[in-house]
């Protein structure tokens, strides 16, 4: 390839072109900087320009990201699993939201809302009657750390079949609340029905400890830890996004891996 094209011009021309170039460039910089300034002013306002903690435009893009990565999502894509011996003994406890102060594990029942006005209560024994599934996987926190951990419980898809929830499973979302309703998540049904998603009652082969959400928690390897709700009190189905604790604080609703 030849070197760049040469041109002979007068110094006046050079000056003229330089000034024009700088003016256009400066104008663009001013436009962008003022847009950014307006944006950051909106950012700090808790006004109608925000959607759950972040500006509406950002929320729109994050939701678009969800639609895009939903296309790639497949039940065939499994989280990597590890031998049981790789699982850590000291499992990190990263939060106690929704754990309650004087929670009585023995009185616990799962409140399963099949339809508005049609609620049943299940004991841990009802759930344990289903086939048990163990999973050892790399639990990933949205903060950036991860830990190989070992969990045991009932596949959510088995749970759906057992309790005649096929119709409900066709709805878009599943909502979960802690017994005190202080922590709550909403999860797309596709991710809930993923073969590695379990209603978990064991950790490292022993009953789930209190600080890990005894007696029953969610383990969903296709999501960040914020979605693995500890101590499930209520479970329901919806075609609209159920409320989500961290979503309201500005995090991505989908939070899928």
């Amino acid at each position: 390839m030849k070197n760049q094209t040469e041109e002979i011009v007068s110094t006046t021309q050079i000056r003229k072109r330089t000034v024009t170039g700088l003016l256009v460039f400066g104008l663009l910089v001013i436009v962008i900087v003022s847009m950014a300034a307006l944006f950051s002013r909106d950012w700090n306002k808790s006004s109608s320009t925000r959607a759950a903690g972040i500006p509406t435009q950002f929320r729109t893009v994050l939701n678009a990201n969800e639609s895009i990565f939903d296309l790639i999502f497949s039940e065939q894509h499994l989280a990597k699993t590890y031998p049981v011996n790789d699982a850590v003994k000291n499992v990190r406890v990263n939060g106690n939201y929704g754990m309650g102060k004087n929670f009585d594990s023995s009185a616990w029942k799962l409140q399963l809302i099949r339809k508005p006005g049609d609620t049943i209560y299940l004991t841990l024994e009802d759930i344990k009657a289903l086939p048990k599934t163990d999973i050892v996987f790399d639990f990933k926190c949205i903060e950036g750390w991860s830990q190989v951990t070992h969990w045991g419980g009932v596949k959510f898809s088995d749970f759906i079949n057992k309790f005649g929830l096929d119709e409900q499973a066709h709805m878009k979302y599943v909502g979960l609340h802690t017994p005190d309703n202080a922590y709550y998540v909403g999860i797309d049904s596709k991710s809930m029905l993923h073969p590695q998603t379990i209603l978990c009652y064991e950790m490292n082969g022993k009953p789930l400890p209190m600080n890990q959400g005894a007696p029953l928690r969610l383990i969903i390897p296709v999501k960040y830890g914020i979605k693995h709700l500890k101590r499930i009190g209520t479970l329901f189905f919806s075609n609209h996004r159920p409320p989500d604790y961290w979503y309201e604080k500005g995090y991505d609703y989908y939070s899928g891996l």
């Binding site: 094209t5 007068s10 110094t11 050079i14 460039f25």
Partner: peptide
């Protein structure tokens, strides 16, 4: 009138890519 040789160094497209990339 004074004259100088200039060369067309960076095409417009490359200048746009460069200055978009910088803040992004």
């Amino acid at each position: 009138m004074q004259q100088r040789t200039i060369i067309k160094k960076h095409p417009l497209a490359i200048r746009w890519f460069h200055w978009i990339n910088f803040p992004v």
